[in-house]
Amino acid sequence: MEKSSRDRLVEAGLEVLGREGGARFSVRSTEGEAGLPHGSVRHHFGGLDGLVDAMVQHLLRAEMEHALTRPRETLHDWLGPNRTRTQARYELMIQGFRTPRLRDALVAARERVITDVATDAGLPRDRAAVLVAALDGLVLDALLRGESEVRPGAIGMLGANRVEGPIPQRT
């Protein structure tokens, strides 16, 4: 099934942002990457802000769903096949430092992830917050080093049985 123009634009935006960084990310570069005509972003999202909002929502659904329930698989995905998408997520975080609306959306989404992790893993919320932050740190470290894996033994140091083993799924 062919992806909708809207989905193609979101994925193209993530690709451009992750590959080129914030300085080269634009409406035109996104439309070009998606193979869609000029004006497509405005038509589907109302402009760049709407596209970025859609990118954030897409990332949070796709990226965080299994982050702590299957950490090894998630880290392999983030640092391997979906590395560019992972880099786009961190680019958005950096942009959030200077854009209050984006920062608020990212913080709210991150808080939902922390709540879900705490619930799913049966952890106190503060422990879940530390685990989420620690995973982010490990991923950033690997990205900066140009590696496709986190440092050996790092996952085990995060909390042995709660991170390494299966975490119950919500029903």
Rank of each mutant, 00 (worst) to 15 (best):
H66Y: 07
A88F: 14
V113Q: 10
G39I: 04
A133L: 09
A67M: 08
A108N: 07
L143P: 07
I114V: 15
E20C: 14
Q57L: 08
T119V: 12
A121W: 04
R162Y: 11
P168V: 08
L138R: 05
F25V: 03
A109K: 00
V107Y: 03
D120M: 09
V41D: 10
A67F: 01
L106M: 04
A67C: 05
G165E: 05
D136S: 00
P124R: 13
G13Y: 13
L138T: 06
S26L: 02
M157C: 14
T84R: 08
R89Q: 13
P37K: 13
L9C: 13
R110Y: 10
M1W: 03
E73V: 06
L106R: 01
R70P: 00
R83N: 04
A23P: 10
R89L: 11
V163D: 00
R70I: 03
A34D: 04
A134F: 00
H66W: 08
T30W: 00
Q169L: 10
A23G: 13
A160L: 13
E147F: 01
E15Q: 15
F25A: 12
D116Y: 10
A34N: 03
P166F: 06
R42A: 07
R127V: 09
R28S: 15
R125H: 13
G96H: 01
G46Q: 10
E11M: 02
R110F: 06
H66T: 13
W78D: 03
E91A: 15
E147R: 11
R110T: 13
G39C: 06
L135P: 04
V10F: 05
L138C: 07
R24S: 14
A109N: 14
V139R: 01
L140S: 05
G153A: 01
A23M: 09
A62I: 00
M55N: 04
T86L: 10
S148I: 01
I114C: 01
D141T: 12
V163L: 00
E63R: 13
G21S: 15
S40G: 11
R24W: 06
V107R: 04
G137L: 03
R103T: 06
G146W: 12
G32F: 07
E33N: 06
A23L: 15
G13R: 10
G39H: 07
R145P: 04
D136N: 00
E15S: 15
P168Q: 11
L138H: 09
L36E: 01
L123C: 09
D77A: 07
P100K: 06
G137N: 02
D141Q: 12
H44D: 07
D116G: 08
Q95L: 15
E31T: 05
V41I: 11
A121K: 02
I155R: 03
G137W: 03
S148W: 00
